[in-house]
Each structure stands twice: as structure tokens, then as C-alpha cells.
């Protein structure tokens, strides 16, 4: 069982043909279910566009996305997305944000609340149920955003540089937290980052994109078992490999 990206290409049309922007070039890759994949590449290369296509927020110019052999329809319940900069609803509390998806789904209030409270405990947000996003720290906001997505039990979780705006200590803590959560679940995670250390620490596989139009230029499998030591020789070796590929691209 797998998520298959089949020859995906994307061009944003401009007013004139010369103004159109070619973003993705023939992205073809199979991601086995339950894998943690990182996509890394030069900034502005089209990583986010790929996530948006998988999430159904954008249409591919060519190619398709299959989940277990079936084409993903727009707004599929199988896919969830965590955005860069949290994208929390500022008028909703922690509880209200996490609850949003279940509310849309029409789950009744009692059941909704008990599920949400469970997530609030797991995500270490107890005591902040009724706080608004502006009253939360960056790390907390990101936990709310992840909980809001995971509570819908998507089979594929897309994460667009979710820890990009956190300070490095919070970032490390969030990476460990994310791994703990993911290891209890069977989700596939596609994690976009431009931080090599992060990708090495988290992933089963690192996919390296070229600069625009993005092509897959390297796929690195990481067999090194978790929990990983960030400073170990193994991690350093993978880091060197990724950096070598990336340096040719900048």
C-alpha cells in the first residue's frame, strides 16, 4: 500500500507565454504507507506546490496522485495538512481550533469535546484549552496546528516547514515530540523542510529536489534506527551526502 506521485508537473500560466512559471517537472515517486519522508531543496523550488497538489488545493498541470491505487479526489479525508506559520483561526481558542474539523464533519458536541480533550492531554496543552492563539508560544501554536490536523485521522499528513519559525531548542523538542506521536500512529508523513539536520533526524527517506523547475535529483534511504543521536557519525555521514547533492544546486 502506498502513495504514488505519477509524473506530476505544474506550470503557473502567465499573461504571456514567457511569463508562465514552470514549477514542477515530472515528479515521480512511490511512498510506502507509514513512512516518514522529508523533501528538501533550494527555497522557492516548488516543494510547497507539491504539497498543495497532494492536498487538493492546487491542480497539477499533468500527472496524478494515487493513494492505494485510487486517484485522490479533492478534499479527500485521507489527507491532512499542517501549514507554515500555523494558520490557526485567531478567533478560536485552542479547543475551538482543534475541534474545527470534527465540527465541520458534524460530530455531536459531547463526543467532539471528549476527543478534543484527549488530544489536548496528548499534545501537552492542558490548562490552555481556552487560550486564543495570540496568547500561546510558537511551540504551542504548532502543537495546536498538528493536533487540529491529526484529530481527523488522515492517512497522509503533509507538513510544510512546520517548525521553520521556532527557535532551535523548541524546534528540537518539537521534532522529538512529532516522532513520539507518529510512532504510535500509522500515518504517512511528507515533511517539507530546508533544514538538513531536521530531515536527517526525522526521516526514513530524504527526497532532494533541484531548483526550479523541481525534479527529484536524489533519494536517500536512512536505515539508522531511532531514537537517533544528532551528533553521531551516522547522522553526520547522511548530512554530508545531502549537503553534497544540495551544494550543486545552489
Amino acid at each position: 500500500m502506498s502513495l504514488d506521485l505519477l509524473e506530476l508537473s505544474k506550470t503557473f500560466p502567465g499573461k504571456e507565454p514567457v511569463e508562465s512559471v514552470h514549477v514542477l517537472e515530472n515528479i515521480h515517486h512511490r511512498i510506502e504507507n507509514g513512512q516518514f519522508i522529508s523533501i528538501i531543496g533550494p527555497s522557492g523550488c516548488g516543494k510547497t506546490t507539491l504539497l498543495r497538489i497532494i492536498a487538493g488545493l492546487e491542480k497539477a498541470s499533468a500527472g496524478k496522485v494515487l493513494l492505494d491505487g485510487k486517484e485522490l479526489v479533492q478534499g479527500s479525508e485521507d489527507v491532512g495538512m499542517v501549514f507554515q506559520e500555523y494558520a490557526l483561526f485567531p478567533w478560536r481558542t485552542t479547543l475551538g481550533n482543534i475541534e474545527m474539523g470534527l465540527e465541520i464533519k458534524g460530530v455531536d458536541r459531547e463526543k467532539r469535546r471528549s476527543t478534543v480533550m484527549e488530544y489536548i492531554r496528548t499534545f501537552d496543552l492542558s490548562g490552555f484549552e481556552n487560550h486564543f492563539p495570540r496568547e500561546l508560544s510558537g511551540g504551542m501554536k504548532q502543537r495546536v496546528a498538528i493536533a487540529r490536523t491529526l484529530i481527523m485521522n488522515p492517512r497522509v499528513v503533509l507538513m510544510d516547514e512546520p517548525f521553520g519559525s521556532l527557535d532551535s531548542q523548541t524546534r528540537n523538542a518539537m521534532q522529538e515530540f512529532l516522532l513520539r506521536i507518529w510512532q504510535k500512529r500509522a500515518d504517512t508523513i511528507i515533511f517539507v523542510t530546508h533544514n538538513v539536520d531536521e530531515a536527517v533526524f526525522l526521516s526514513d527517506e530524504i527526497v532532494v529536489f533541484s531548483k526550479r523547475p523541481a525534479r527529484i535529483i536524489k533519494i536517500l534511504k536512512i536505515e539508522y534506527p531511532r531514537p537517533r543521536d544528532r551528533t553521531s557519525e551516522e547522522c553526520n555521514q547522511i548530512r554530508r551526502d545531502v549537503l553534497k547533492v544540495l551544494s550543486k544546486e545552489s
Binding site: L57, G75, M81, A87, F89, T149
Partner: peptide, 20 residues
């Protein structure tokens, strides 16, 4: 991005109108 976040939570047009 808030409208898109709602869409990835499977919001209908009506949900987006009333909840976003």
C-alpha cells in the same frame, strides 16, 4: 491560508462562509 486550512479540514462553502 485560513480558508485553505479550513478546506483541508473538509469545509464546505457554507462552512467557510459561517466559520471563517
Amino acid at each position: 491560508i485560513l480558508i485553505e486550512a479550513a478546506r483541508t479540514l473538509h469545509a464546505s462553502e457554507r462552512d467557510i462562509f459561517l466559520k471563517v
